[in-house]
Design a protein around this nucleic acid. Structure first.
Length: 649
RNA sequence: GCCGACGUAGCUCAGUGGUAGAGCAACUGAUUCGUAAUCAGUAGGUCCCCGGUUCAAGCCCGGGCGUCGGCUCCA
């Protein structure tokens, strides 16, 4: 048998007999240490098991528990182990699919009864026993017929359905993975044995429709996660706890920002503090938008269905709309607006426009209602009543590029003010679309140039645009690394036709404007939820509902304290005096719990010298200083990042 | 909407069929204090709602409402 040449990532070339298994090659030609740590490999870039033979000259890359890719493989291994455990404990349960997901894995089972928490504990225990036994994973290639026969024998109807689907797509051979007696039909790759997994934790269970379709049977999904060792699991659990402490629903209560009532599910009550936050964000956005050439308008909340028929909402979106009865006819004649776009189109069409009016940038922060499914509601992130920092830009095709640039600049400024970083995704023309290629060229190019001129890195998503135009979505990363899709700018070639919008061009003829939909916060509600979690409730001074609280050592300093409050209050700052009959220490403690940026301690010394003794949230004790000195320092942080004084909406 | 878990004082939570509890918050009184929690006392609940089982229900059963975790990131 001849030798083949294996090229390693560092460029080294090694010879080995043709047909050598990767595991053996690593052990003999590289080192026993790596062989022991290896989880899977890439052979010529394709993910494979270590048991795979090297049949020809190839490049080889070994992945160990140090590589994130290996952890994903181990979690896929864990999904198999969990399925094995379930079928051991609950014979008759059918398996379906068990992929890895962003955080862990799941496995869907078909079974009449949902898993109880006790059963999940048993499953976790059994799964970890299988890990301890360190059973080897064995890969096998079989014909579709053999695979069907195998799973028919086991009564695995869902597996057979999957096999048929795959065969219909042209697959000739299928792969099976066995560990011990348990076998699953699976692409792989898998690690060498169950022992590599380390530790499996079952997280939760829930119902999930087969193939995500409510018409299909309901499956029982088990979520889990796996790590190479207990230490990594503990670290992950701890991180989870930390994230839970930031939960905006938790902090919303603790900091008294907002509340919900069963009579208004999905619609928040905002406390004075929450309202301060809300209106600050509104005012900030308003200021920046106006500075960027927008005009603000308000439009009706309630519209006759005639509008929704034109916009298409009556056909396509009615289930998500709140309809209102006309008390005279008894008919559901009206609908609460779920979006601002149609009313902006109506507004645009109310006057005849010249090309000189363009671009026209309409900004609106009106309240919107969407009837979200009961089970979809969640804190402030998924609500039925909310407001967007919405705007529509009406422009000519030639203005697309400069308008998108202007928007990206604004967006950059806004996210920067909150210390949020972002990534852009550009979605281009799909196969089914309207509009000429010329339009799409101009539109996509406008988006691209805008991103490039702003030096924004972006991911290209070819074919992912809407049928009526391309778009850019912006994912922001918060302080603990989570990603949220927030901003968007979407070109719309369709709206102007539907609503017969036009302007008179230089040529004295009618033209259709292009519409850009765009938002930066997305919705105020969801954005506030994200900010609460991003800052863990400790808002920067300019945003904080209470920016400074004054604590006196004794009641005799209250008069002076109130005079300071009045001075700062007159400048638009949110300052309070804690005049309750509590000890100074207690008041300071509470100010910390409430995460108020500045606590100003006032004793006889400060009164005598017209000073304050400020303390920052977190405990940094600034030395006593003249009030004017403090005020200058405070203004810098308490003013909006634009430098403007805080004059909320 | 569907599956599951949960719903007890303003908040966080104990309470597995036999007289509804704690801590914090609130209120009253005393204390006026120099940078993270002064002391004592008082009050506070239709145990989410409706119905059922039982001598007896916060607890068991059924229905409703709400909250939470999920409901195609490809074998």
């Amino acid at each position: 048998m001849s030798n083949v040449i294996v090229t390693l990532p560092n460029g080294d070339k090694k010879e080995t007999p043709q047909g050598t298994r990767i595991a053996d090659f690593v052990k003999n030609s590289i080192g026993a240490g790596l062989a022991k740590a290896a989880v899977f490999a890439k052979l010529n870039g394709a993910e494979v098991d270590l048991s795979r033979a090297i049949d020809a000259d190839a490049s080889l890359q070994i992945f160990t528990s140090k590589n994130p890719e290996a952890l994903e493989v181990a979690r896929h291994d864990a999904a198999h182990v969990v399925a094995d455990a379930v079928q051991q404990l609950f014979p008759g349960t059918q398996v379906t699919i068990g992929p890895t997901i962003e955080e862990g894995f799941y496995y869907d089972f078909f079974r009449e009864k949902p898993f109880t928490p006790e059963e999940l504990e048993q499953i976790e225990k059994r799964a970890n026993e299988i890990v301890q036994k360190d059973v080897a994973f064995v890969r096998e290639e079989v014909s579709p017929e053999a695979a069907v026969k195998l799973f028919e024998g086991k009564g695995e109807k869902f597996k057979i359905e999957i096999i048929h689907d795959i065969v219909n797509k042209g697959a000739k051979t299928l792969t099976l993975y066995k560990h011990g007696d348990w076998v699953d039909f699976c692409l792989g790759p898998h690690g060498p044995s169950t022992g590599k997994i380390g530790v499996i934790k079952i997280l939760s269970s829930s119902g999930a429709y087969w193939r995500g379709d409510a018409k299909n049977p309901m499956l029982q999904r088990i979520y889990g996660i796996a790590f190479f060792d207990q230490k990594a699991l503990d670290a992950w659990s701890k991180q989870k706890e930390e994230a839970a402490k930031r939960d905006h629903r938790r902090l919303g209560k603790d900091l008294d920002l907002f509340h919900f009532h069963p009579f208004a599910p999905g619609s928040a009550f905002w406390s004075p503090k929450g309202t301060a936050l809300y209106t600050t964000l509104q005012g900030f956005m308003r200021k920046l938008a106006l500075d960027s050439g927008y005009v603000e308008i308000k439009t009706p909340l309630l519209f006759n269905k005639g509008l929704w028929e034109i916009s298409g909402h009556w056909d396509k979106y009615q289930d998500n709309m709140f309809l209102v009865k006309d008390s005279e006819s008894g008919e559901l004649t009206y609908g609460l607006k779920p979006m601002n776009c149609p009313s902006h189109y109506l507004y645009f069409a109310m006057k005849k426009h010249s090309y000189r009016d363009l671009p026209m940038r309409l900004h609106t922060q009106d309240v919107l209602h969407r009837n979200e499914a009961q089970g979809a509601l969640s804190g402030l992130t998924r609500v039925r009543q909310f407001a967007q920092d919405d705007a529509h830009i009406f422009c000519t095709e030639d203005q697309i590029g400069s308008e998108v640039s202007r928007f990206v600049k604004l967006l950059d400024q806004v996210y920067g003010a909150f210390g949020l970083t972002y990534q852009a995704k550009l979605s281009t023309r799909p196969e089914k679309r309207i509009g000429s290629d010329e339009f799409w060229d101009k539109a996509e190019n406008g988006l691209k140039v805008a991103l490039e001129s702003m030096k924004v890195e972006y991911e290209l998503k070819p074919g992912d645009g809407a049928f009526y135009g391309p778009k850019i979505d912006f994912d922001v990363s918060d302080s603990i690394g989570r990603k949220w899709q927030l901003g968007t700018v979407q070109l719309d070639y369709n709206a102007a036709q539907r609503f017969e919008l036009s302007y008179i061009g230089e040529d004295n003829k009618e033209h259709r404007p292009v519409v850009l939909h765009r938002a930066i916060y997305g919705s105020f509600e969801r954005f506030i939820a994200i900010l609460i979690e991003h800052f863990a409730g400790a808002f920067p001074t300019w945003l904080a509902p209470v920016q400074a609280i004054i604590v006196t050592v004794a009641d005799r300093q209250l008069e002076y304290a109130n005079s300071l409050k009045a001075k700062l209050g007159a400048e638009g700052f949110r300052v309070e005096v804690d005049d309750r009959g509590l000890s100074m220490q207690k008041k300071i403690a509470e100010a910390q719990v409430q995460k108020i940026p500045f606590t100003l301690v006032i004793g006889d010394r400060e009164v005598e010298t017209n000073a304050v003794a400020p303390r920052r949230y977190g405990g940094a004790d600034l030395k006593a200083m003249p009030f004017d000195e403090f005020a200058a320092l405070f203004r810098k942080e308490a003013n909006w990042p634009t430098g403007a004084a805080p004059k909320p909406a």
